[in-house]
Design a protein around this nucleic acid. Sequence first.
DNA 1: GCGGATCAG
DNA 2: ATGGCTGATCCGC
Length: 834
Amino acid sequence: MEAKNTADTLGSGFLSRMALNDNKAGMEGLDRDKINKIIMEASKGSKFYENELKKEQQVNQRIGRMMKQAAQITEQQLQSAQAQVDKLTAVLERGRELGRVIVHVDMDAFYAAVEMRDRPELKEKPMAVGSWSMLSTSNYHARKFGVREIFAEYDENFLAVSLDEAYLDVTDHLVQRLSWPDSMRTHLLRSAGDGERKESVEQPAPDDLSPVLFEDSPTASASPCDAVGAVVFGTSAEEAVREMRFRIEQKTALTASAGIAPNMMLAKVCSDKNKPNGQYRIPAERQTVMDFIQDLPIRKVPGIGKVTEKMLSSLGITTCAELRQKGALLSLLFSETSWHHFLQISLGLGSTNVERDGERKSMSTERTFAEMSDAEEQYGLCRGLCRDLSQELQKEGLKGKTVTVKLKNVNFEVKTRALTLSSVVSTEEEIFAAAKDLLKAEIDHVSPHPLKLRLMGVRLSGFVSTDDKKPLQKSIIGFLRTGQSESGGATQHISLEHGVTNVSPEKSSNLMHPDALCNRPAANLRLAEQLSTGQTNQEVSKPESGPKRNPESFFQRAHRLRLQANQQEFPGVSDTGHVLLNPVRTECFTCPVCFREQESMDLEMFNRHVDKCLSGSSNAPEEKGGSVDAVGDCVEGEGSWQVHLSNASQDVTDQRKGSSKPHGASGPNSTHPQANVDRQPVGPAAPSGRLFKRTEKREPSLCVPGPSGSGFQDPSRRAAASHTIVTEAHGCHGDDRKSTSVGETPAEAARLDPRNPNLVCPVCSVPQDTTDLVVFNRHVDVCLSQGILQELGQHVTVSKPSNPSCTRVKGFSREFPRSDSTSRASDSRGKHKR
DNA sequence: GCGGATCAG
DNA sequence: ATGGCTGATCCGC
């Protein structure tokens, strides 16, 4: 039933496939969670709602005060204010920077989560409370893998603003890109072969791949099995971003939206414009920027939230044009930071400096729970929070002076109480000593006597300067950041041992033509050799943390080498031509548990594989059956079909067989979480639950039927379509991989059973004496981070591939450093006078 | 420095 | 979509 051919995939095959998907296990029980939520809402609802009303009233009062103030402003004041605004405007205008190409990429995974949740067929299935959060957590864990290395190829200093958002400055990349041959802008298309394309039909977008076009391709009729093609992208910014999104989707099955603009603020707004699975560009011209800004609702601007929107709206400001118009008034009503910020927005200005911001300033942990009025219980909880916080702090080697306790009572009223100590602290005892006092004061003095809490939190801030941070930890972060310059960190000591020549960061003069590779200095040749043979070490893997923008980044170089290797591998790939008989290998699904790339683009199979991995296959294959491919079992075992990529993917398989050990959870007897070090990248917290769901439309670039371009409706698109897709049929041949069924150990079974209160850590395999998923997750994180430390401390192993075409730079992918998760773009977002 | 509040993801 | 969680920042005191 699944073995429809590609053409069918887009036609009648949908329904049957969807039906099957509907029955797919794995997301069961979301409904229970939903119900729980609803019940919670119902019971607490009024309280919550009351509090919301109260907050709203406060905002209204604030607005009232502001309006009153506004009414007293004289014409005279307004005029002088206007003069000041004009002055600043001129200054800002002079400093306007249009020379950078900033990209904001935003993963669309949220929509996938919504769909998963809303699927009605999933009702009435049991599931542990909290799985929803686990599910989304696992999605987060999974999501970040595929995209990181891709981002780095376009901007090695890209800024990960959160798990699913990043800023890139692709200016330099674009310059280099101009000199690249087509082959370096060519990426393999993997046919999804799954029913996940229903969106393409149900909500067709102009960019969409037309089924007709696809049927026209030689693939569809030639092969009942699978189609493979390559897509050549152009050299423009839009093409580069399209390519990036294409690769992201090919690799992770998740779509991304992107904005391209001269600064971060505009890029962010742009990425929202054609979401999901779209992109938008604002050309680097002042007038274009201003035109774009005019009608833009201020609420779309990052930093303008609900309250600010409401306040401004009461002044008759809803668009950026009005924001500009009322600049003088705003300068009289808002703080300096606020109105400066407003003015910048209204001019379409924003930061062009895509750099991570500084050190973290605080760390906190808080928890919501059922009503709690018993003081002893509250103290106990407080201690627990302090313990958790202390552990997190020690992971980053942080010590701070100010302890803050946050309390939310059953009426949703929030209070914070802080105490600044004379010296820095970090241990549980130290923090608790302060927190306990703060809590006691509240318990003792709260008016309706028993303090009835629904949330408690502990925060530590006032960190000392960064010097005493553990160098190793810094280097990990630096590594994860893939080369972002560390602010005073120890990372800078770790330079490339086999230094990439430090070319001055001039823009075009240092362009490296690919062909010039052989002329590069010996050190680079050595690096190239190491990359292609897999002989490398941490120093080599460590991206350069020197000058911000080098002519060619480490990752770009790696990518290029890989492509060149591919060219050797596939002589059919033309350097300049568009006919690619044997397309290069490109991204594919990457299992978040075992980190293996999956040949199949079939989501269901992929999910099944992930489930298998999660259920403990990770400790099995090598020990039990030799070189059994852990991937294979999840395919044949289900009597399903297997996508075959004749050339390239076979190589991948070979590589896996030859070199990689399974990884993810260690065996049950393993004392050290990361005992077997010589494996591939460090695994993430084993996610529990289903992963990826492809929900979005197909990458628009794939629409290109061929050089003739007959399929284009949109002229602009046709013009932009310098890429050419050539597909090739591959016959079905037998899967030579063995399959194995991996039994679950009792511990694993316990872990997987959502009803079992004892959670088992997937890293250390030790059952955790808690049912609290937060606590559990935290434990897993600790385990993992220990593993990372250990692993990095020794060395970084890049497995030697049996085929140069498979050479990849193995990056660490565990998680964006915490400090990033909140670092926002430049915004000097201001609050307002009250 | 403290406490409240806004904003973001 | 919604609330929970984490973190940053600002404002007024």
